[in-house]
């Protein structure tokens, strides 16, 4: 205590305030995981560059053939697995991106909570539906 007062003679930063500031910060900031979502956003972005180019080129090649051509294309195991990987990366990226947008623009506590919950639930639901459908098309 005396050690502290030598550095801060006016006691502008008393121990009680420090303790409560730490208490308030725990669980909200970087507790060794602050950059986790930032890093995952970048990694999913890197993965999505080749995956989405693949999707655009493949759709251009197969979508004009109607249901039969599309079902045949999606029926190949390699295609189904690639599509599943794409959907996981896509919806994880979307979940993180929409979360940041909500956090930036929505400030009312309850609305913010509802919006964040909706983002997480909808993204995971779409991911699950998409992945299971892709795998079903190839491995039924």
């Amino acid at each position: 205590m005396s050690e502290w007062h030598r550095r801060d003679p006016l006691n502008r930063n008393p121990a009680s305030a420090r303790a409560s500031a730490l208490y308030r910060a725990i669980g909200l900031g970087s507790a060794k995981s602050g950059a986790h979502h930032w890093w995952l956003q970048r990694m999913t972005a890197v993965a999505l560059v080749p995956l989405l180019l693949w999707l655009v080129v493949s759709l251009l090649a197969h979508a004009r053939g109607g249901h039969q051509a599309v079902a045949l294309w999606l029926g190949r195991p390699a295609v189904a697995v690639t599509m599943a990987v794409l959907l996981v990366a896509l919806f994880w990226h979307m979940k993180l991106g929409l979360r940041v947008i909500v956090e930036d623009y929505v400030h009312a506590d309850r609305v913010k909570f509802a919006a964040l919950a909706a983002v997480d639930l909808v993204c995971v639901a779409l991911m699950a539906i998409g992945v299971f459908t892709s795998l079903y098309l190839a491995f039924r």
């Binding site: 959907l87 896509l90 979307m94 991106g97 947008i101 459908t133 098309l137």
Partner: peptide, 21 residues
């Protein structure tokens, strides 16, 4: 990004339509 989020719903719906027949 928001527009693509809406579009991704369509991608999943399209996949489901392919599976449905």
């Amino acid at each position: 990004g928001v527009l693509l989020s809406v579009g991704s719903v369509l991608l999943v719906a399209w996949l489901v339509a392919v599976a449905d027949g």
